[in-house]
Nucleic acid binder design. Structure first.
Lengths: 337, 337
DNA sequence: TTGAAAGCGTTACCAT
DNA sequence: ATGGTAACGCTTTCAA
């Protein structure tokens, strides 16, 4: 039960504690094959494992990266998380995870996180105040926002180009001759929804389209179903609905069907995200992809850059998705993927 | 840029370093309101944050719990993870996360994890060898397996009672007069699939049913679709298919539809897990629930028990789910939920 | 209620 | 290639 330390190993192996340390710290350091194996053997016998905490303490480097995820259960965050973790393990770093409780400000969590002296911090799907971003910068802790951004603050960010995506969807719907357009919004005050809506409505306006209908939902299947039902039962039912994400779009398809409307013949429905489910035969949803892998790669690149070169300025990367043409919008030729 | 320590605060506040420590360690310790506020004020000025690493070092307690998740992207693990994290944050613990890369043995990851001196370890959806379980026990690190178990090893476990679930499904299908039964298997050598299949086939055998058809899949939508297609196109097409999880069952429903078969009139389909999607109008899948919340609660309870009482013996908790009767099985009365 | 001093188990640096 | 020793920034006795 008593913890065995490098000193115990040193004594038993008849070498100095420094030597034991060298064997385990792996780096350069020249050690004779002979003593190395001896140390290793003794460690095995004694059941010695280096104490990472002590290592952090004396090297002033934790090799820990903090991850804050606000919405773990949303469609693609688990995937993102898995990729992050795999990558971190490959480069010998560990992940300390935090989740933002409902209504909890990220700002409030930071002090706790900083106590752990993380080497860097990734925050997904949540924003921090510019003051806090300043604080992090002063602290010397690189922060990368994933799928959010703050302008003017010293924090890097990787984000889908939702504004441009919204614009392209507006173009698509107009180009294919739709005449009564609607928008099903995601949760208010999320940048995801705001940006998609802004791109969509701005472009519509630019092209002279004026009577856009709108229904509020919150990114969930149920609210998407609800919102679409309301829209489709109204007097001036739309012939095309853009839903702020795929889940709601799938809800909308089900809503249309339960009203005995055909998709896309009676109403076109387009989503956003390109989650796996949107490819399923029963939905075959036309959507606009989030290039998640590209976003993950960008994040990881920015991160290693910052880690190697702490003084490099913050980077903001906007990743544009692409149209995934399937069968739920009238008049568009399905693409292969 | 220079890190400010409790010594800096002590000097500036004109107190001893011990006093500063006392102020921040929060616990009992009597401190005059006067010095406390003074210390707090100075800390604020200097931007001091206690160093958690140093604290771990000297207190020999990390307050860190390790979480190993093999399959983060499977349907309900994100939910489980979120609950775990929320709970840990409530009780002032932090989570160090690991994921098992494809084909990576958990056993190989443990040494790394132990280096961090985690107070406890939760392993989801993966097993460890009994030797490793022994090692953990000797180490004094409580281990709890979530959704897996090892018998005879000193590790606690919380697991759905998949065998009994499989048996009940056999009973249900037989009781409702189905005559040509099939099973769509999940990945081989997963205890989830093995247990569900064992319960199902054992019970079928007990009741004298003999020509069960079987198709191999791997828990994914696509393979479920495939497997069901094969089954339904055969000469002796089944009139009831039990799929080892909901995702495959949903694939099976789509497969049936694409063959112009009606569910449940032409073929009954039943899944397992009760994921949110199974309640969607377009599937309305009859299934057997995993009582995830109960499992999470059990896990957390066992964990705090172990933490308070390290010598308590390992506990194995089998959580039985219940039938969620919806519309995809002929002859069963839908329940409300 | 406060202070002094001894660890905690490494790494890093300086010798040899 | 190896050993000695001073940090690292706290918590924890033990005294006062």
């Amino acid at each position: 039960m008593k913890r065995v330390t490098s000193i115990d190993v040193a004594k038993r192996a008849g070498v100095s504690q420094s030597t034991v340390s060298r064997v385990f710290s792996g780096k350069s350091s020249y050690i004779s094959e002979q003593t190395r194996t001896k140390v290793l053997r003794v460690s095995e016998e004694l059941g010695y494992t280096p104490n990472a905490i002590a290592r952090m303490m004396s090297s002033r480097q934790t090799n820990i990266i903090g991850i804050v995820m606000a919405n773990i259960t949303s469609p693609f965050y688990p995937y993102v998380l898995e990729k992050f973790l795999q990558r971190f393990q490959e480069i010998g770093r560990n992940a300390l995870m935090f989740t933002a409780a409902p209504n909890q400000e990220i700002d409030d969590m930071l002090p706790l996180i900083f106590q752990h002296r993380v080497d860097a911090l990734i925050i997904t799907s949540a924003t921090l105040s510019s003051e806090m971003a300043e604080a992090c910068a002063k602290h010397g802790t690189p922060v990368i926002l994933f799928n959010r951004y703050v302008t003017g603050a010293p924090a890097s960010a990787v984000c889908a180009d939702n504004v441009e995506g919204g614009r392209r969807i507006a173009d698509l719907l107009l180009d294919t001759g739709h005449e009564r357009l609607a928008y099903v919004a995601g949760s208010v005050n999320t940048s995801t929804n705001n940006d998609r809506e802004k791109g969509y409505t701005d472009r519509l306006t630019e092209r002279g389209y004026t009577h856009l209908q709108r229904a509020q939902a919150n990114f969930s299947y149920e609210t998407g179903f609800q919102a679409a039902t309301t829209l489709l039962e109204s007097d001036h039912a739309p012939d095309a609905i853009f839903c702020a994400n795929d889940i709601m779009a799938i809800g909308a398809i089900d809503a249309a069907r339960s009203l005995h409307l055909r998709v896309p013949d009676d109403v076109s429905i387009i989503g956003y995200d390109n989650i796996p489910m949107s490819a399923w035969a029963s939905y075959n949803l036309t959507t606009f992809s989030q290039e998640v892998d590209a976003m993950i790669d960008d994040t990881l690149n920015i991160l290693s850059n910052k880690l190697e070169n702490p003084d490099s300025p913050p980077v903001i990367s906007l990743v544009l998705g692409r149209l995934i043409a399937r069968g739920s919008v009238r008049g568009v030729q399905p693409t292969d993927s």
